[in-house]
């Protein structure tokens, strides 16, 4: 007989690990990158909203001599027209975030439902829409925006529109792919077996369940929008002067690099911080949503 009774099985009572299941929200808040990114981004939002309170001077009016070095009145000096650099960068936050939020919102609001509908319904609608998105996707975002702005003319709104349209196909593809992967899951079949209408299934059953990757995409789009907007302003096709756009400031600063080094550094740093914060949020979201997608819905029942 080879049954070997284990005698040492009666171990000292060990502390049972408490059963904890983290929701995606908790996981996100526990990820350092997500947390820092969110905090930085919130600060940026406050700066954008409270720009008139924070900025010491007007972003557009002359506040003293041109190209001053940093001093007590102008912490980072002035530009070639004597405007306070710090104030211009502060107001620039507003412009950047407007473009970012606008472009991300536009592309999501259009792309998400279109993607879900094509993914769920399939057939020729799907084929046509996918060919169009393939075409737009084949053109680099910046080139696309460039063409749109060149045809429509410049301006904050048009810039946002151009970037938003350019970013829409990515949302369509993502929403479509996510929908396709859900279309034959049992809970979608279950909704069908309950007699739910197609619209109901698409927007009540499918949509909430594909939101996690969409959230990530929104953040990525916002970050790309800021960069594209800056790049277009840099080549003179974005926000027209005298609006205090970071890209525009970078462009002008090139001529004065030796007189006023802060002119280039300040908007550059602002740009880097904003994009960095968004990327950090994106990473945090991806981490949090990758493993546990179900966030705890609010307990309130109708």
């Amino acid at each position: 007989m080879t049954a070997s009774p284990a005698t040492s099985a009666a171990v000292a009572p060990r502390v049972a690990t408490r059963r904890v299941r983290y929701s995606a929200r908790q996981k996100f808040l526990r990820s350092t990158s997500g947390l820092i990114g969110t905090l930085v981004f919130l600060v940026l939002v406050v700066i954008a909203i409270a720009a008139p309170l924070i900025a010491p001077d007007s972003p557009l009016k002359r506040a003293g001599d041109a190209l001053q070095q940093p001093n007590a009145h102008h912490w980072f000096g002035t530009d070639e027209l004597g405007r306070d650099l710090f104030s211009r960068v502060i107001y620039g936050t507003r412009l950047s975030l407007e473009t970012a939020v606008g472009a991300a919102a536009l592309s999501c609001v259009v792309g998400l439902p279109v993607g879900i509908v094509t993914g769920y319904l399939g057939g020729w609608v799907d084929a046509v829409i996918m060919r169009v998105t393939d075409f737009v996707l084949a053109v680099p975002e910046i080139l696309f925006a460039l063409v749109v702005v060149a045809t429509l003319g410049s301006g904050v709104f048009k810039l946002t529109l151009a970037i938003g349209i350019g970013a829409t196909p990515a949302f369509i593809r993502l929403a479509r792919a996510s929908t396709l992967s859900l279309r034959d899951t049992e809970y979608v079949l279950a909704a069908r077996s309950m007699g739910a209408a197609k619209r109901d299934i698409m927007f009540r059953t499918v949509m909430p369940n594909i939101l996690p990757p969409i959230f990530v995409q929104i953040v990525v789009t916002a970050s790309v929008a800021i960069l594209v907007a800056a790049a277009l302003s840099f080549v003179g096709l974005g926000t027209p002067p005298p609006a205090p756009s970071w890209g525009g400031m970078l462009q002008t600063s090139r001529s004065y690099l030796y007189q006023q080094v802060w002119y280039a550094i300040l908007p550059g740093v602002a740009l880097a911080i904003t994009v960095g914060a968004l990327d950090a949020i994106g990473r945090g979201l991806q981490q949090a949503l990758g493993t546990e997608t179900a966030t705890k819905a609010s307990g309130a029942m109708g």
């Binding site: 080879t2 049954a3 070997s4 009774p5 284990a6 040492s8 690990t17 408490r18 904890v20 983290y22």
Partner: peptide
């Protein structure tokens, strides 16, 4: 695991003979 240590096997003993 992120949720703590899991003891999947806890003082297990068994043996098996040839042909068994």
């Amino acid at each position: 695991t992120p949720e703590g240590t899991v003891r999947a096997v806890d003082h297990v003993s068994y043996s098996v003979d040839a042909g068994e």
